[in-house]
Design a protein around this nucleic acid. Structure first.
Lengths: 199, 199
DNA sequence: TCCGAAGTTGGACACGGAGTCTAGAACTTG
DNA sequence: CAAGTTCTAGACTCCGTGTCCAACTTCGGA
């Protein structure tokens, strides 16, 4: 994959709509060419195939997530507050890159089989959040959990599923509403105090 | 799609491995034929195409989820306890149908575009759980949430993401561990009491 | 038992889309 | 302007999907 010039990168974003609605396999190379205004031959000049185009789009999303999460997780304030920011920041990426995010979620299988991407998503979100959970246990703002990585993964699932729902064409809830719902769900849990796990 | 005889249905499950590892598009009809022992012509006699075969597998998973959730959500005991059972039951489906579940998650986009399936998943999980949340608010075992459906969806995301992780070939955690993690995450939340949302 | 309908399969094939290739146009830079 | 590099049109190959058909088997009545 040759280095992709900005001009192309921008145009490529226009393909996200197609990919998010039809999925990669129902999208012909020619369709991508028409939608982006980049001729097929040029696409193949830069990418080795359709899959790599998709991968390029996905990287953009992961870059955004990584940056957003990293920024939100930094700071000296209580980990609980930072975690709240992480949730909001991640969901904001869905609002900013709705179509690529949707495409990523929908062609998740492809993403998983794309070499680096599954590692990337782990490193962009799971690791930092797991770290945050440990810090929170230390500063007393977060409950001490037994498996920070697994917990972070569950959190990621809650966020992405909710986020996808929020940016889906048929969606009613706004990102703001979803952020509120997810945050409350994640921070406070669902049980009333009396019904929490005894330990 | 003609009604599929049991003999075939059983054999078809053998295709789940392929689909879960390679995804539908990298799996040729001929591969499915070899893996299941069902000749290509016969496959086309029953299904209109590859996609419908995938759909058939997905339905099986959704059937299992629906049944498991329905059973777990029933009863007269506190909604909190029933919710715990629902989580465990759903994760158990991953353990029982690992490959089809994996395939479903990985080809999520296809599933979403498959007419009924997205509705089904809503009806199998989101609706019953949302109901459970309302009941819990009434019987005092669960916190009153503003948006039961959105909350249920977030919960679904947490479960499926964790479940997929648990049955992935490279996975370390067992379903039992994951169940424990998710349950504690969902019921108790992550914040310490002092750091819960003031209201 | 016999017949017709339905199920089952091999094998040939048309069709469409992915990706390759080549020649040359259009830029860029010295 | 010369010599590279980038970009593009268009023709072409290859391969997998899905179709078709002709034969063979199975099964449920009458």
């Amino acid at each position: 994959m040759r280095e992709v010039p900005d001009r192309l990168a921008t145009k490529l974003m226009l393909a996200a709509d197609l990919l998010a609605t039809q999925g990669l396999d129902d999208t012909k190379t020619e369709d991508i060419a028409t939608a982006t205004g980049i001729p097929k031959a040029t696409l193949y000049y830069y990418f080795s195939g359709k899959e790599e185009i998709l991968g390029f789009l996905f990287e953009r999303v992961l870059d955004a997530v990584e940056a957003a999460v990293a920024e939100a997780a930094a700071g000296d304030d209580p980990a609980a507050d930072r975690l709240r920011r992480v949730i909001a920041a991640h969901l904001l990426v869905f609002a900013e890159l709705p179509m690529p995010s949707l495409a990523l979620q929908l062609d998740l299988g492809r993403a998983a089989r794309l070499p680096d991407l599954s590692l990337r998503s782990r490193q962009s979100f799971v690791d930092p959040v797991a770290r945050l959970l440990s810090e929170g246990a230390r500063d007393g703002s977060l409950r001490k959990v037994k498996h920070p990585h697994l917990t972070a993964l569950a959190l990621l699932g809650a966020i992405t599923t909710s986020g996808v729902n929020a940016v889906s064409p048929s969606s009613t809830p706004s990102i703001a509403t979803v952020t509120e719902v997810v945050t409350s769900f994640v921070m406070d849990g669902l049980a009333t105090t009396a019904n929490r796990a005894r330990k």
